[in-house]
Design a protein around this nucleic acid. Structure first.
Lengths: 225, 225
DNA sequence: CTATGATTCAAACGAACGTATGAATCATAG
DNA sequence: CTATGATTCATACGTTCGTTTGAATCATAG
């Protein structure tokens, strides 16, 4: 029995789908674009993955499995080194967002293409995609929220959750790419070539995130508290 | 000659399109959905607007024209009150992002629906939409960047532009709505009802944004500068 | 009332969509 | 070599897409 799955076809489809979903979105990318770019037959996607929905789930799973496990490993190590004490907030933020951003340099794990796809997809309209991501992210989110709760015992938990949310947004934009940056600027990012740009993006974004996370607490004007 | 355009049909189409584009995205919303929800004939969109592309442009123009003019007016007033001195960064940020967020309470100007649409659209894959938004935003962006340059003379301009970008991302996520928040939390936002939620979101987000904007500058590790 | 132009309407267009089918081709086990 | 099951392939299905058409309806000007 010949049971060896042709890994090459599967990978070629996943690579093409990753790139096209990043560029044109889920609804904006057709099966014929994907199979054309991957140089495989139109029926190959349904044969190997079952459907377009199942394909994009696999596109994400292929990268997110490793990413979220790596995030857990880094946080494990930080907590072990802290030996019972809470981990510093900046280290927790770096474990979550820094680990993500450093994927950009790792072409074997999707590199910048996957990062931009992920950045765009968190606001993706398609319900099933957001539901899928929420499910994939649940465990790692809970771990990191808990770590932040312990690291910032004086900050109300609701406030921490909101700031985590804000940090996700800032990061998504940052990695959604230069296209979105066109909203803010029209000059090419001056004196910086694109290799340099990423090296500088990480510390830039980290400063911003930590500054936001550690900002003075808001006070609510008229009614509540 | 009967030259009075039926404003009712146009407005009903725009309202339906705004709501549906918010919920399902541009590619995910069909003309038949829009005209069905608006209770108008299928051909009405092409008759009144020309095409689906022209329709979504009008959806945005209807709201953004006022928003960006209002932002300019607020900044005008702040600069007049400062009388030559630079305006405080927190006031500039509030003029830009606070003015946006306060639209949520103004149902006549789109309210929360338009805000969520805008939040989602800044990462919209469709090239022509981002190009259109960049064009619509150019003037107001330039004004606010200039104001921030003057307010923060010690911060490199490239740094300010990036941080503006990060602030846009955090805000987009915040207004893209509770759906995206599901990534971070699964509990209903506790003790807060949805009316209360918005009143608290604004000071929460503002604290975060100012904290990020005023964070210590990053230093770039190995090579450059 | 009549004429005119704006608007609405039902119906249809060709193109593109995701998916399914059954035969052809391939690699391997026996 | 033959048999088997995995994979590829060309082709087609039924649906939905955005847009167009030409007649019907409406409101107003003269």
């Amino acid at each position: 029995m010949a049971e060896v799955r042709n890994a090459d076809t599967r990978e070629r489809i996943l690579d093409a789908a990753e790139r096209l979903f990043m560029a044109y979105g889920y609804d904006g990318t057709s099966m014929r674009q994907i199979t054309g770019e991957a140089s495989v037959n139109l029926a190959a996607v349904n044969y190997h993955f079952g459907s377009k929905e199942a394909l994009i789930r696999e596109v994400f799973r292929r990268r997110l499995d490793w990413l979220n496990e790596e995030r857990m490993r880094v946080l494990d190590r930080l907590e072990a080194e802290a030996g019972g004490q809470p981990v510093k907030p900046s280290l927790i933020v770096d474990a979550f967002f820094g680990t993500l951003l450093r994927m950009a340099d790792d072409e074997a794990r999707g590199g910048m293409t996957f990062l931009r796809l992920l950045g765009r997809t968190l606001t993706e309209p398609s319900e099933f995609i957001r539901a899928f991501l929420a499910h994939e992210y649940k465990a790692v989110m809970d771990r990191f929220k808990e770590a932040l709760f312990r690291a910032l015992p004086d900050v109300p938990k609701a406030e921490i959750v909101w700031r985590f949310h804000f940090m996700l947004g800032a990061t998504s934009y940052a990695i959604a790419g230069t296209d979105a940056l066109r909203l803010v600027t029209d000059w090419q990012i001056e004196e910086e070539d694109s290799v340099d740009r990423l090296d500088r993006l990480v510390p830039r974004l980290m400063s911003f995130l930590i500054g936001g996370l550690r900002a003075p607490l808001p006070h609510f004007d008229p009614p509540g508290q």
